Amino acid sequence: MLIDNHNRVINYVRLAVTDRCNLRCNYCMPERGIKFAQRNDLLTTKELQRLSDVLIDLGVDKIRLTGGEPFVRSDIRELLEHLGAHDALKELSVTTNATLIGPYLKQLKAMGLTSVNISLDAIRPETFARITRRDSFAIVRENLMKLLEEDLTVRINFVVLEGQNIDDIYPMMEFQEKYPVQVRFLEEMPFNGGSRNFKKLHWNHKQILEHIRLRYPEFEKQPAPLTSTSVNYKIEGHAGGFGVIPSFSRTFCGSCNRLRVTATGDLVTCLYGKPVANVRELIRRESDTDQLAGLIRQAVGSRAKDGFEAQERFGPVFGSSMTSIGG
């Protein structure tokens, strides 16, 4: 079992399989993209499999594959099938923009996937194109509707962006009213790869909730695990539900059970900190499994108490892009 220096059990890993993405969302990276890692610096599928095996042996029972966009990897199926075969893994999920998931839709559940998070910051084509700088809304919606037919838990992550997608909040609420999907509205974070000048948060979790309340005055808070980052709500008669994630306010840090691994093998114990170790060389030297596990335990054993302490400890980290941090 992985237990950090604040006596929190770390059983959830967000495992980035690439830093590449086929979209260019304006709150994540500049239109020209960012300086992506050299391909030989990225962990191979075999290396990701070995790392995952060690993490599961250490007590991790929830893994989410992130990116970049995970489905830009042509060998993603091999990794999913490997992870899906682990009986000790209670949850296997992926965060995707849903543009490339089409060929895998019918096999996802058979591969062991339990849920899919779709990053979708607009429900109208024109808003989608403006934010992503790509004309891909039709294929995303098509794949989303097909996912809803596959008996998987489907969530939509909607980053609330001042001056960009506020008018899409109510239409997104109408979508969850009609379909069994959980929409989570996220505070914007400053990890934009230098694409925008982030000075302050315009829409915090309280403002988002109050905006929703103007149109939907009656909703009921839903029970959630202590480790949940989302405060979830349900409206009577709606097929789905919604939640708000205070990702910049960081109200959930005290119960954090997550560890991030970037596509190049960096261990990130807090999103608002910097990498504390790298596992790539140990894996490539085929070092003893105990040595690899020891490095992970050491990283987890010196975590910041919360995102604010991590920010103070490591200094500015806001020039990074979420695509390189690991989603």
Rank of each mutant, 00 (worst) to 15 (best):
L161T: 08
S247H: 05
V17D: 10
Y27K: 06
E150H: 14
R39I: 11
V276F: 00
N257S: 15
P246K: 11
R280S: 09
I139R: 11
L144V: 00
E312I: 12
V9C: 07
R24I: 00
G163C: 10
D87M: 11
R130L: 12
F137Y: 15
A122R: 03
L214F: 04
I212W: 01
Y216C: 05
L226M: 13
V140A: 13
G33P: 06
I63L: 10
P171I: 10
C28H: 11
Y104M: 09
T262G: 05
F318D: 15
G294D: 11
S302T: 14
D4T: 03
I139N: 11
R196L: 13
L92E: 07
N157P: 06
F128G: 07
A310H: 04
F71D: 00
L148G: 10
A299V: 07
S230N: 08
L105W: 08
H211P: 01
F191E: 08
T132I: 05
Q182S: 14
A138C: 06
K109V: 09
Q164R: 14
G102C: 02
L144C: 03
A88V: 04
S247G: 10
R215C: 06
L92M: 06
I56F: 03
F318K: 15
E177G: 02
D151P: 03
E78S: 11
L186H: 08
S136I: 05
G193E: 10
Q291V: 13
C21Y: 06
E286M: 15
A263P: 00
D306F: 09
G315Y: 08
C21I: 06
A277H: 09
L144I: 02
N157L: 04
N197M: 14
D168C: 03
R297D: 01
E312N: 13
V261Q: 01
Q182H: 15
R313K: 14
N97G: 03
F185I: 05
Q291I: 13
D306H: 12
G315P: 03
A129Y: 04
E81I: 13
A85C: 02
R250Q: 07
S230V: 05
R20M: 12
R50M: 12
V244R: 07
R284A: 04
L259G: 01
F219N: 01
T264R: 15
N192A: 12
A277V: 06
L292C: 00
A263M: 10
C21T: 03
G193N: 07
T262L: 02
E91T: 15
N232Y: 02
S255G: 05
P103K: 13
P223S: 04
